[in-house]
Every structure is written in C-alpha cells, then in structure tokens.
Design a protein around this nucleic acid. Structure first.
Lengths: 196, 196
DNA sequence: TATTATAGTGACCATACGGTCACTTGTCAA
DNA sequence: TTGACAAGTGACCGTATGGTCACTATAATA
C-alpha cells in the first residue's frame, strides 16, 4: 500500500466510482479533489476505463490477500459463544471500514455494467463469505459443538441474512442500532437452533 | 395499464434505466427505440428527472396494488408441502417476470442516487417480502403446522437467503439451474427444521 | 554543467447529451 | 370551414466530459 500518486488516484477513484457511479464520475473533479489537474491522471493511466480496471485489479488482489488461501480462514470457534463473538467482530469491521463499505457500494451499483464486477459481487456477497463459514461450521460439527448437518447449506443460511442486513445498513445507516439488534437476534436464534 | 404514449414512455424508460442506469440513459435513443423523436418526450414529461419520478410513482402504485392491503396476503398454506409449493410458485413469477426483473435491477443500481429508490429497495428486497411470510408463518404456527417461534424472525431467516439467490440469478442468469437447486435445498431444509 | 526522464499544467478538441423552439400535422368541436 | 388543441419533428443551443498535446518544472544522472 504505497503512497504513490498512482495509488492515491485509485483511492480517489474508489470513492468517486462508489459515490457517483462509473458514468457519474468525472475525471476533472476526481483529479481536483486530490489537488491535481485532469491531465496528470493520464501520466499514470491511459483512460478512465484503465483506472477502473486497475481499481478492480487492486480490489481482487486485496481480497485474495485477505481470504485467498485456505489457511487464511479464521480458526474455528471452540464454543457457540465464541462463534457469536467472532461473528460480531467480523461484522463490526465489515460494517464500519470505509474501504469495505465503498467496495460493496461500487459492486452493487456497477455489477450489471462490468463483467468482472459481476463475478466479484457474487464472490463478495455470497460465495466467499459462505465458504469461510462452511469450513468453520464443518470443523465445529466435527468437534461436536454444532449439530451434524450440511455445513455448506448452514453457512449459506447463516451468512445470507446477515449480508442482506449489511446491505440494508449501507442503504440506511441511520437505522444501524435497529439493524444491529436484528442481526443479534438472528445470530442468537440461529446458534440456538443448531447448537449441539 | 393504458396503452397511451405516456405509458409507453415509462415502459421504455424502465428498460433503459434498468439496463443503462439513470445517467447512462440517453433520451434520443430512448425515444428512437419507440419510433419517436426526443422532443416528443417533452410533450409528455418535463424532463428526464420527471420521467424518472413518474416511473417510481408507477412502481410504487403497482406495488401497493399488489401487496398494499393486508387482505392481499396470500392465504396461509394448510401443510408444509403447500408452503413449499406456494414458495416455488411465487419464486417462479419473481424470477421470470421481465418487469419485476428490471425493477430489481433498477433499484439495485440506483438505490444510492435516489432517496425514493433507496426506501423502495428496502421494502422490495427485505421488509415487504418478510412481512408477507411473517403473516403466513404466524397463521401456520397457530394451526400447529409449524413449530411455535417468532414469526418475524423466521420469515426473515426464510426470505433473506431466497432473495439473495434471486439477486445471484439476476447477475448470472446462465447459472439458473444450479441456483434453483440451491433454493430448493434451502427451502426443503428450512421447512424440515421448523415443521411441527 | 548539460541531459534526460518523470510529473504536472492549461489550453484545446470532438462529441454526446439534456433541453428549447418554431413549425407541421391531424383531429375534433363549434 | 375554421379555430384550437394535442402530438410530433428537426434544427439548434449550451454545457459537460473524455482525451490530446505542447510546454514547464524538478530532480537525478552522466
């Protein structure tokens, strides 16, 4: 994460693409926002689309670095209380980290315009999170902490509602307290249902 | 649903806004697509934004007409098999009706640009569906078909994963068979878990 | 010191787009 | 028949925007 102009452009682009959309992003304002003139951008990238692609490259690289290899999966909780705590900890990060929030927003709004965004959205919103929890659940089932069941199906039933509430919170952040309660209630109920 | 030019413009606008986004929609092409010149649009609407607002008005009216009053809630199934069948029937419509698909796409991509779209998205993707099933579940619990539990929480746990798979299918329609299997597996598992 | 590469500037270009306007056409009522 | 109104056209306008280019400044290097 160097602090080069080239990187800073991507930082600014993430904000602008997420907040105004790809088409709504104008390179003059984007450059001005970082104290540059528009032409300076062209010293680092060939075109608007080139910036977009570089941004997606970086997002994918970041995702792989964070969740890419199997050993990056967080260690399986040793109790249901630990599962609860871990879920809440991950949630707190996911819901409040500015970069992550902007990434979600960008993927949501651009998923139908760009092929890579489309696939990345599925990974980010559905399959990625599900797989992480599938591994965790499988191990917890082996350890007799959760009832034996299909870990993949359970992970999906667990993460999909949480993700949908995260989207809700992205849309209407002023409702966060209420949404957090809903998440807690859901997580508690879920763990109660499948605890061994 | 009259066939006036004014209505036809909204039909075309739904397609274009959904496929190209609000900013990506250009009035010349939109008009040309229906064999009109751009200026003709201005005989019916004051501006691009006016078309957008009229479209949202119509969407909301349509939603209210369909789900607005309590008595519009479908009758509660008399068995778990009936619940399964009803879910699949509603799903088939939701996933294949062109208007509904376009509406979802439009709400997803424009939710952060427009206040009304934002609220409508929450209703459409989360609260609306949840409430319908909450009523159904409550009645089924009263009738001893489902285990007694919090109907609201259960409805959320039921509809949110399904909705997220619908979004998945919107993004990657070529995966529909696979996704349908996932939905069936989830619904079966869910009903199995909460059947009385 | 002279040279060269890098980063940045501002003026400029072409184009696309939302919106306006004067004008035409067709229909219906007085 | 005529007048009025609604619907539609095409030319035109202003502006925003992505992109290019000749030029400058700076700093490292030979």
């Amino acid at each position: 994460m160097e602090n080069t102009t080239k990187e800073k452009i991507l930082d600014a682009a993430l904000v602008s693409f997420a907040e105004n959309g790809y088409k709504g992003t104008n390179l003059r304002d984007l450059a001005a926002g970082m104290g540059l003139s528009k032409s300076a951008l062209y010293k680092h990238y060939e075109s608007k689309e080139d910036i977009w692609n570089a941004l997606l490259d970086r997002m994918e690289a970041y995702y792989v670095a964070r969740f890419g290899s199997p050993e990056k999966t967080p260690p399986a909780p040793k109790s249901c209380d630990e599962l609860y705590a871990m879920t809440m900890r991950m949630l707190d990060f996911t819901m409040h980290d500015k970069r992550v929030i902007l990434t979600r927003r960008l993927l949501l709004t651009e998923q139908f315009r760009d092929e890579r965004a489309r696939h990345f959205a599925t990974l980010h919103f559905l399959c990625g999170t599900k797989e992480i929890y599938a591994k965790i659940f499988a191990e917890m089932m082996d350890n007799g902490i959760l009832k034996k069941d299909d870990p993949d199906l359970l992970a999906f039933a667990y993460t999909a509602p949480i993700t949908s509430l995260i989207h809700y919170c992205d849309r209407e952040p002023e409702k966060e307290p209420e949404i957090m309660q809903q998440i807690e209630a859901f997580v508690t109920h879920f763990i109660g249902t499948y605890r061994a």
